[in-house]
């Protein structure tokens, strides 16, 4: 029952989101909303998938790509692009070029992380969290430093990129992203059982014949692609991955990734839909989706942190 409820909610909320107060306006309102809905669907899948996989790889339930600095890196890249190319140059690069560039930078970051995770010994959770925090802060201040160097027009362009929003998505970009995510899901189908074994811990998985270094390489590359897609589609999502992953574990009552990934995706989409509905119809655009999501998910992250501590 608990497994299907989130999907039922997705359908219900999607219907409400597309139709509420639209007067069946097929020329403008509904197509625009469908576009935003598409961004939420694809983005939600990316956020949940990358977060859950990352947690399985690192063997703990607090780390996500966002916490480990992937999104901060994306923002720094955007700031540098604006600084070096100017706003005209960024427009010239286009959404597709931007995604490709972002993806390649994240592949690089994934590669560094993978070297580091493979080193023997030190895998203290709080140490990793601290590294993520410091990296995020460092990249964040670098981004601010760059922001001070650019013109107000360019600054507002950058401001737009650095917030969660479903409004900037374009049809072609959405289509390419959806196809990419679909292809990745197909390619990754056979790896789900391996991820299940990895949940036993990396040593136990290795003694069950999992080639851990290879799986780590593949999955971190996958995560880089997913984060690049989701951040370019809807901006950084910060703590959202932690929330949906942990809620998914709780509701799934099973360790199988087949279930937790599906549930997590549904939950992410539900969170997006609720936030967007609230922004559009309750707050009348006086607040942002990112603000609402961060409030909710950041709070939950704190709860998780304190709970983990009291368990020790």
């Amino acid at each position: 029952m608990a497994r299907h409820a989130p999907w039922a909610l997705v359908v219900l909320l999607s219907g409400a989101f597309v139709l509420f107060g639209a007067d069946f306006d097929m020329t403008y309102v509904i197509p625009r909303r469908l576009l935003r809905l598409g961004a939420m669907l694809v983005g939600g899948v990316c956020v949940a998938w990358s977060a859950i996989t990352f947690q399985t790889l690192t063997g703990n339930r607090l780390l996500t790509p966002a916490v480990m600095g992937y999104e901060a890196l994306y923002l720094l890249l955007q700031a540098l692009l604006v600084l070096l190319l100017g706003s005209a140059g960024v427009v010239l690069l286009g959404a597709q070029g931007n995604v490709l560039l972002a993806a390649s930078v994240m592949f690089g970051y994934s590669w560094v992380l993978h070297r580091w995770l493979l080193r023997e010994g030190q895998h203290n959770l709080y140490f990793l969290l601290l590294v993520g925090l410091v990296l995020t802060l460092l990249l964040g201040s670098l981004t601010q430093f760059v922001q001070l160097k650019i013109s107000p027009g360019e600054f507002s362009l950058l401001q737009g990129v650095s917030q969660t929003s479903f409004n900037r998505v374009q049809g072609a970009q959405l289509l390419v992203s959806a196809l990419l995510v679909g292809a990745l899901a197909l390619l990754n189908r056979n790896q789900l059982n391996t991820l299940d074994v990895l949940a036993l811990g990396r040593d136990q998985a290795r003694s069950l014949g999992v080639d851990y270094p290879r799986v780590l390489r593949q999955q971190l590359a996958l995560i880089a692609a997913l984060v690049a897609i989701s951040t370019s589609l809807l901006g950084p999502t910060a703590f959202m991955g932690v929330l949906v992953a942990n809620l998914a574990y709780r509701l799934a009552t099973s360790y199988r990734h087949r279930l937790t990934l599906a549930l997590g995706s549904a939950l992410a989409i539900v969170v997006f839909l609720i936030a967007q509905l609230l922004v559009e119809h309750l707050f009348n655009y006086k607040t942002t989706v990112g603000l609402l999501i961060n409030l909710l998910c950041g709070g939950y992250f704190l709860v998780l942190l304190t709970r983990q501590r009291s368990h020790r």
Partner: peptide
């Protein structure tokens, strides 16, 4: 060859 490590922490359902 099968290996069983000590104190495998399992917080899995």
């Amino acid at each position: 060859v099968a290996t069983l490590r000590q104190a495998t922490e399992l917080n899995l359902r």
